[in-house]
Design a protein around this nucleic acid. Sequence first.
RNA 1: GCGGGUGUAGCUCAGUUGGUUAGAGUAUCGGCCUGUCACGCCGAGGGUCGCGGGUUCGAGUCCCGUCACUCGCGCCA
Length: 615
Amino acid sequence: MHAYRTHTCAALNQSDVGQSVRLSGWVHNKRDHGGVLFVDLRDHYGMTQIVADSDSPALPVLEKLKLESVVTIDGDVKARAPEVVNPNLPTGEIEVFAREVTIQSRAEELPLIVNSAEDYPEETRLKYRFVDLRRERVHNNIVLRSQVISSLRQRMIAQGFNEFQTPILGASSPEGARDYLVPSRLHPGRFYALPQAPQMFKQLLMVAGFDRYFQIAPCFRDEDLRADRSPEFYQLDFEMSFVTQEDVFQAIEPVLAGVFEEFSGGKTVTPAGEFPRIPYKEAMLKYGSDKPDLRNPIEISDVSHHFTSSGFGIFEKIVGGGGVVRAIPAPNTAEKSRKFFDEMNDWSKKEGFAGLGYVTRKGGEFGGPIAKNHGPENMAKLYEELGLGENDGLFFAAGKEKDAAKLAGAARTRTGEILELIEENCFKFCWIVDFPMFEYDEDLKKVDFSHNPFSMPQGEMDALENSDPLDILAWQYDIVCNGYELSSGAIRNHRPDIMYKAFEIAGYTQEDVDANFSGMIEAFKLGAPPHGGSAPGIDRIVMLLADEPNIREVIAFPLNQRAQDLMMGAPSMVSARQLRDVHIRLSGEAVEAQKEASTAEKTDMNSNAAERDGE
RNA sequence: GCGGGUGUAGCUCAGUUGGUUAGAGUAUCGGCCUGUCACGCCGAGGGUCGCGGGUUCGAGUCCCGUCACUCGCGCCA
C-alpha cells in the first residue's frame, strides 16, 4: 500500500464500498458527538467524511487534533444510510470508517479559518498566504489561472507561434514606467533593469527571423498600485512578422475569445472576428475613456453647439472659450428625486471635477436650473437630437475637452452603475484603434509621443513630413474588455529613417535616438521585417474570468498595495557585505528609515514570540 | 505626493447624547453528547478600543497629529 494514500479525497463513491483505503489530507472540520466523531478530510481534489466511534483507536487521536492538521487515515469505505447522504458532496454517498490515524503534521491555532467563507483582512491573508490559499475560492482562482495559461499556450502554439524566453536582467531605457533596478557587482556603478515588458527583445526576435513569437512573460514596473495593477505581472507577449494590423487582430481574437468562452462559466463572449473597432477619438467622445465598458448602454454626446448662445451663461462662456459641453443621458429617471441628481454633482466635485450639471425630465416637463435658463424649446431640440425620451434625465460635463471627456466618462460609469444598467453575465470586447501618434504636452509646451514611440505612424514618412503632427495617427491598438485594458499593441516602426523623423518631431536628435536605442536602431539597419504584436495581461484576464474585483485574488503570492511581501518580508534589508559587493552606499535618509523600521520590526517580532510562548 | 474609507478579543462585528465593570458571534481551553456535515448544550480564559497628544469631573465615542491597510487621483509609453 502507498505510504500516504490509495485515493484522493474526491475519489471515493458508492462503487468503492467495502474497500480498505488510505487517505491523506487536512482536517477541514470536525463534528464531535462524544461517542462518534466526524472529520471532513480535505485535499486539493475534494473532501471525504471520516467517521470514528469508540471502537476505533483513531477516535481519541482525532478528537484532540486541531483543525488543519495533516493526517493519514486507514479505514474502510462504508455506504451512508440514505437519510444521511450529503448531496452537496461528490463523495457524499460514502464515508470512511477510520481504523487508524497517523499524524503527519500537527497544526497550531490558526490566524484564519480555512473552512469558512468569512472575509479576512488582506494583511492577515497575505501574511499567512499558504493558509489562505487552502480556502476554496482562492484555491480555485489559482487553479483557474493555471488552466487559462495552459489554454493560452496551446492556442498560440496551434497558430504556429513559438515560445521563447527573453532576459530578465536587461538594460534600463529612458521612456516608459519606472524600472526596477538591480545593481551590478562586476560593473561598479552600473545597473540592470527588470523588463517592463520584453518589448525590444521580441522585436529583435522578429529581426532574427523567427516570424511568430510568444511568451508568458513576467513584467515589472515600479509604479504605484491599483486594484488591477501589480508591480510584477504576466503578459501573453506576442509578435508577428510581415503582418498588418488586421493580421494581428485575426491572430489574437480567436485566442482571447476562445479562452474566455472556455472559462467564462456560461457568460456570453464577443465572438472572434466580431470585436468592434472604436477609433480612440470616438471612444473619448462616446465613452469618455480609452477603455470603455461596453456593457454600459449609456453614450455620451457633444452638445457644445447648443450652447454657443444660451440663457445658461456658464456653458455659453465655456463654449465661447473653446471648451466643450458633453451630455450624459440618465434614462428613466423621472421617479428619481432631486437628491439623486444633486448627489451626482457632489460626487463629481469630491472626485476633483468642476461639477456636474443636470436636467430632469418628468413626463416631458423639464426641470433644473440649466433647463430653466436654456429654455424648454431649446431643451426639446437638444433632446430630439439625442433621441431622448420624456422621462430621461441628462447630466452635463463642461470644460476643456480633455477634462470634460474625463468627467463625462466617469459620470457615464457611475450613472450606469447606480441605475443598474450594466449588463451582467457577459464579456464585451472591443479594439480601440487609431491612437494619435503625438500629443501636445501642456507642461513641457512641446509635441511629444502620446503612446509608444516605436509604433508605425499611419501614412509613414509621408505623414510625418506633410501632416500636422497632432493629426497623425499610429498603428497602435488596445484590447478592452468590460472596461479593463487587457492589451496594448502596435505595428512597429521598423524603418530607421522614419524612426529618426518621428523622434525629430518630438524634439529628439538622431544622436539622442542612437544613444538610447542603439541596439534596436542598429538591428533595423541590418534587415528588419515589418512586424507587430501585442501583449494581453494574463492577471487581468484571470481576474475577469474569476469574477474578482482585485488582481491579488488571482496571484498566488501577491505583493500588497505598498509592494511588500508580508509573508517573506520583501523588500528586506541586506548586509553591509552585500551592499559593498554591489558598490552601494545608503543615503543618510535611507539609513534613518532602516533604523526606524528595524525598531518597529523587533518590537513586532518580540510580541509575536511572546504570544506563541503563551506569555 | 494628494484625497476617500477602515482600524474595538486570534478573526468578523456591535457599542446610543461623552457616563457604572467595553459586548455578541466565531476560534481557543474544560465538561457533556452515537449520525453530524456551519452539529448541539454548559462553562472558562481572552481587550494598549491602531499609536501619541488635547478638551472634559469623565473619552472607544469629541478635537489635533500620526501610523497601518485599502480604494481612487497623480503616475503607469
